[in-house]
């Protein structure tokens, strides 16, 4: 069955022009999101995953700039829209949830005000209706006594509750796509599970698509349908969750998977990927992972193009597949 393609990103490049030089944070990424689908973007800090998320809504601030590419939402290129048209998309058709709920709500405005302004601006609600709807939204995200909470200021709420409020704001206009940038990183582990469960429930209920950005592969593999692994501004592997987790092609992806703790294995220490991501100002030619790669050699692929490893599974390198079996035995 052909699913409805809702977002198509082609060759997106976002660079930051710093005093030290040009940082190619997102260096030509392409991907698609279908209706109701969850895409997970994984990578370590500085891989360009958050910048990708911000670029989709054109929220890149100076000295950053979207250099080229296309972000097609239902066939319309967002990068060609005026700011005014773009504001009709932001928070309305495509919403975003930020990493830290402690700082993403305005401290001097009530929770209600921050929800209702979205409804009033995007959906032409009257003040009274917006307030009624805001109470419903707070209830929907699981906040108790919403009639009372609506008049509270963010400082009166806990971190988990604030993130629920942020989710309520993001879903207020019933968007088509929700971009969640590390939505649980700043929260306690117990709250994390609740928030992820809540988001998953709500987007299933409204058939919303989601792009979830995280450094936490375990979390992503729990919730996402498709996974995209980023490294130093490139997509290095991209595919359906099952294939990508069970048969990782790229050595980096495999490293990420191997670094997760496994209950059945008797491990003294977690496996780690040696070294650090290279400085974004001084990237190696060709494969950027090469200096850290266990399998690097003269037979490495020349370019950084994605190629099809198997159906609906792409990677820039497939060396891990030849070695993975051996490695697993070595550890086990």
């Amino acid at each position: 069955m052909q699913k409805e393609k809702i977002l198509e990103v082609n060759n997106l490049k976002t660079y930051f022009y710093t005093r030290e030089g040009v940082v190619k944070s997102v260096n030509g990424v392409s991907f698609e999101v279908n209706k109701g689908e969850i895409l997970g973007i994984v990578g370590e800090s500085g891989a360009g995953k958050s910048v990708t998320g911000f670029s989709l809504l054109r929220l890149i601030e100076e000295p950053g700039e979207i250099v080229s590419g296309e972000v097609k939402f239902k066939g319309q290129d967002l990068l060609k829209m005026s700011e005014k048209e773009m504001n009709k998309i932001r928070g309305n058709k495509i919403s975003m949830i930020f990493q830290d709920p402690m700082t993403s709500l305005n401290p001097v405005l009530t929770v209600g005000r921050q929800i209702t302004e979205v409804l009033i601006f995007h959906q032409n609600y009257s003040r009274k209706d917006a307030r009624r709807r805001a109470v419903e939204l707070l209830e929907m995200v699981g906040i108790s006594s919403p009639e009372k909470r609506i008049d509270h200021y963010p400082s009166q709420l806990s971190g988990g509750m604030r993130q629920r409020v942020v989710i309520a704001i993001a879903l207020a206009s019933n968007p088509e796509i929700l971009i969640a940038d590390e939505p649980t990183t700043a929260l306690d582990v117990t709250i994390q599970a609740q928030i992820i469960g809540l988001m998953k429930n709500l987007i299933d209920k409204f058939n919303t698509s989601m792009i979830i950005i995280s450094h936490d592969l375990a979390l992503i593999s729990e919730i996402a349908d498709k996974i995209m692994v980023m490294y130093a501004g490139d997509i290095i592997e991209y595919g359906d969750k099952g294939k990508l987790i069970s048969e990782p092609a790229h050595p980096y992806t495999q490293g990420l998977i191997d670094s997760l703790p496994v209950l059945e294995r008797d491990q003294k220490r977690l496996n780690q990927i040696k070294g650090l991501m290279p400085s974004p100002l001084d990237l190696p030619e060709g494969c950027k992972f090469k200096p850290r790669c266990d399998y690097a050699g003269d037979d490495c692929p020349e370019g950084t193009e994605l190629f099809e490893v198997s159906k609906a599974h792409f990677a820039t390198c497939r060396k891990a597949q030849f070695f993975s079996k051996k490695l697993m035995r070595g550890v086990g």
Binding site: L59, G91, N92, T103, S104, L105, N106
Partner: peptide, 11 residues
Amino acid sequence: DYISFAKAKGM
């Protein structure tokens, strides 16, 4: 952050 968030809300 709350200013970026307000922008992301399309305000």
